[in-house]
Simulated scan of single mutants.
Amino acid sequence: MLAGRLSLATRRLSVEEVPTPDAGPGEVRIAVAAAGVCLSDVHLIQGALTPLHLQGDVVTLGHEVAGTVDQVGDGVRHLSVGDRVLLQAGEERDGTVHTRGVDYDGGWAEYAVARADTVVPIPDSLPFEQACFIPDAVSTPWAALTTTAQTRPATAVGVWGVGGLGAHAVQLLALLGAAPIIAVDPLPRARERALAFGADVALDPADPGFAQAMGAATGGAGLARAFDFAGVPAVREQAVACLGYRGRLTLVGLTDQPITVADGTRFSYLQQQILGHYGSEPADVTTLVALTALGRLEFSRSVSATVPLAEAARAVEMLERKEGDPIRIVLVP
C-alpha cells in the first residue's frame, strides 16, 4: 500500500510502498477514505516536534483519520466490516497517551490499523473528509473552550488566530452561546471567515485603534476568556492586556518561547489566569460526532482542499505557505 512516511533521522517525507498491515487481536483495519493535514505534521517534518514514544525512527504520519472498517481482529464484537468510522487521535498505553501518526503509524496511508476502543462510528450523513479532522482540529478547541477555560454563555471571548483550530473555536463558541465573540487575526480573509463562522467582531491586531475597538466591543469590561491559537509571544501579551476581572487566557497554540506579563501587579490585582491546554479526551470526540449528527455543527466550509495521498508533500507545502489561508487540507488515498 502507499503510505506517507517520515524519517526522523533526515526529516524527509516520502510516499512509498509498504506492506499492508493486518488487524491483530482487539484491533481493526480501516480502508482510509480521508486524512487531515495538521500544523503538527508540519512541525514534525521541520523538526520542531519530536516523538517521545516512537519505536524506531520512521513513522507514517496522520492523526486525523476516517474511513471504513476493512478487517476485524479477534475479540472485537462491536465493529463490523463496512462500518463508517473515524479514529481517535491517540491511545493510552500504561498511563501515557501515545499520539497516532507521531508515536505510532497513522493514517496517511491506504490502510490503517487501530485499537478497537479508539474507533468511533460516524453517521452516513457525515462525509469522511469532514469527519477525519474532528479529532484534533475540532476536539482540541472544544476541550479548550469547555474543559480548560470553562467558557460560559453571554461572556466576552477573544480568539487570536482564526486558522485550522481558531476557525472552529469561533464556530463552537457560537454554539456555546458566548457573546460577544471577538476574533483577532492579521489576515483580512481570516477575519472575514471569522465573521461568517459566527464572530460578532473581527479585529486586526496591528490596527492602531485595536485597544479602543476591543474596549468598545466588551463595554470596557475586558474579556472573560481569551484563547491563543497562534502560539506567538506577541499574541499572548496582547491577549493578556485585553483580559478583564478574573479573565483567563488559555494557550492552545504551541511555541517554545517564553510568555511575558507586562504588568504583573495589574494581573494579580485583577486575579487573572493563564492556562495551558493540549489535545482533547475521547469523550470530546464522541460528543462532537453526536452534535454533528444532530445538525448542530457542519464542517463543509472547513475543507479547504483535497489532495491525493501520492502528493502529500505538496499538501504539506500548501499548509506551510498558507496557500489560500486553509482551515484543513485533506489527503485522499
Rank of each mutant, 00 (worst) to 15 (best):
P188F: 10
P135R: 05
H53L: 15
P19S: 05
P326L: 05
D94M: 15
A241V: 08
G295I: 12
L145P: 00
G231N: 05
A143C: 15
E192A: 13
V184W: 00
A48Q: 10
R246P: 03
S300I: 11
E91V: 12
R193C: 05
Q88K: 04
A234Y: 03
E320F: 13
R321N: 10
L291P: 01
S280G: 03
V81E: 09
E237D: 14
L86K: 00
S300K: 11
L145W: 08
L86F: 02
L172W: 04
A174M: 14
E323S: 11
T20A: 05
R193S: 15
A3Q: 10
T250M: 05
M1A: 11
T147C: 07
V120L: 09
D263C: 15
C132F: 02
I274C: 15
A202R: 06
V76L: 04
R11F: 00
G161Y: 01
L309P: 01
V307R: 11
L176I: 12
M318T: 12
S125L: 11
T20P: 11
Q171Y: 15
P19V: 07
H63F: 04
T155N: 04
R266C: 08
G90H: 00
Q46W: 13
E323W: 01
L79G: 05
A183R: 09
G56N: 07
C242L: 08
V138H: 04
P135C: 11
R236T: 01
G95E: 09
A262P: 15
G163M: 02
F133M: 07
L319S: 05
S80Y: 07
A262S: 12
V113C: 10
L294A: 15
T147E: 10
L297F: 11
G209V: 11
A305W: 12
G264K: 08
G158C: 09
G161C: 13
Y269C: 09
A213I: 10
L195F: 08
A35S: 14
G209P: 09
A137K: 02
H277R: 05
G231L: 00
T260M: 14
D57V: 10
L173A: 11
A206Q: 13
G101L: 00
V289I: 09
L203S: 06
A310W: 12
F197D: 01
L291G: 03
G324V: 11
G198W: 09
T146A: 07
V102N: 07
D284A: 12
A290W: 10
K322E: 13
V159S: 13
S80H: 12
I329D: 00
S139C: 12
R301L: 13
V252R: 02
L297R: 00
R84L: 06
G26M: 05
P153H: 01
P282K: 06
A196D: 12
V37S: 02
W160P: 08
Q88L: 11
A154C: 14
P141S: 08
G62V: 00
D325P: 14
A226E: 08
V69L: 01
Q46Y: 07
I181M: 06
A31D: 15
A305E: 10
V261W: 03
S304F: 05
F227W: 07
T218A: 04
L275K: 00
I30A: 02
Y104R: 04
L61A: 08
R115G: 05
T60E: 01
S280N: 06
